[in-house]
């Protein structure tokens, strides 16, 4: 399948990522990175600095004394949160794109990606291969970027795809996208990732998060981690709309991620709690769902 020309044009017009987001992702990909390296990148970007300080001093973090230096802020928030903020700042057009084609609201893509990121990082800890949890987090943040562009091309097809999937006439939403548009959100996402010059592990996550067995062997445990993180987010009701849960779990995940039912339940609880904290610190307090 090739990406239709109009979608290629839309991808070519996407703004590049900020220097700080790109540098943060590359630093985080090194397992030996330090808080100092992250703080140095943040300090070179005044807008990111302001946001990191705003978030760490938000009520959600519950710190007694106000924090005014970047390095202390980064040691409290962690590098993951900083990468998330940097991506949200420079690619808000993508993440806050209303997903009308998926019958979803503005902000749904960001929320889904955020919970997927947290859950993928936690699940990566059960990986049998060498999977860096921090890369799984970044992969989770970016896995569905393709939906921002696919949304417009889907038009009113979501209803038909959902009806076909509910009647078991189509295997999953990816197959439905392919039939309706000629491409799917993973292929479009990979093209966006190439447009942004993202590194190979992230390209593989974006392209194969619904078909992890097809990922390059080297990155397969990582891709399986995000595959599962995506399911955890959807199971928690934090999907991106009409497509939520209309995907197939790859039952071979056990070969790569050795997680028991009890451990998964812990991951669900912990991820949900961290997700709430991050959402509150970024956007303010929300009515808590029971």
């Amino acid at each position: 399948m090739a990406i239709p020309p109009d979608i290629k044009d839309s991808i070519a017009k996407i703004k590049p990522l900020s220097q700080s987001a790109v540098r943060l992702m590359s630093v985080m990909a090194d397992p030996d990175h330090t808080v100092g390296q992250i703080a140095a990148i943040v300090e070179s970007d005044p807008i990111l600095t302001g946001n990191v300080l705003r978030v760490v001093n938000s009520p959600a973090f519950g710190l007694r004394a106000k924090i005014s230096t970047v390095s202390r802020a980064v040691s409290y928030t962690g590098g993951n949160m900083v990468v998330g903020l940097a991506l949200h700042l420079c690619a808000s057009g993508i993440f806050n794109h209303p997903l009308e084609g998926y019958e979803s609201q503005r902000g749904a893509l960001w929320r889904h990606c955020l919970l997927t990121a947290i859950a993928s990082r936690e699940i990566a800890r059960f990986s049998s291969g060498k999977t860096d949890p921090e890369v799984a987090y970044t992969g989770g943040l970016l896995h569905d970027v393709g939906k921002a562009i696919m949304s417009g091309s889907l038009g009113n097809s979501a209803r038909e795809i959902v009806a076909a999937a509910d009647a078991e006439k189509t295997t999953d939403f990816v197959a439905g996208e392919l039939a309706a548009v000629g491409t799917d959100h993973t292929e479009v996402g990979q093209a966006i990732a190439k447009h942004w010059s993202l590194p190979d592990p992230l390209l593989e996550v974006i392209r194969y998060h619904h078909a992890p067995s097809k990922a390059h062997e080297k990155y397969r445990p990582l891709v399986y981690a995000v595959h599962l993180g995506d399911f955890i987010a959807m199971m928690g009701g934090t999907g991106t709309g009409a497509d939520t849960l209309l995907y197939n779990l790859d039952h071979d995940y056990k070969k790569f991620i050795n997680v028991s039912a009890g451990e998964l339940e812990k991951v669900i609880l912990d991820s949900g709690q961290e997700y709430q904290q991050v959402v509150e610190s970024m956007f303010g307090s929300e009515e808590e769902q029971q």
Partner: peptide, 16 residues
């Protein structure tokens, strides 16, 4: 209780 099919009985939390 939306269910994820999982023969490993791990991700089928909706059913459980």
């Amino acid at each position: 209780g939306a269910n994820v099919m999982d023969p490993n009985n791990t991700f089928n939390i909706g059913k459980r």
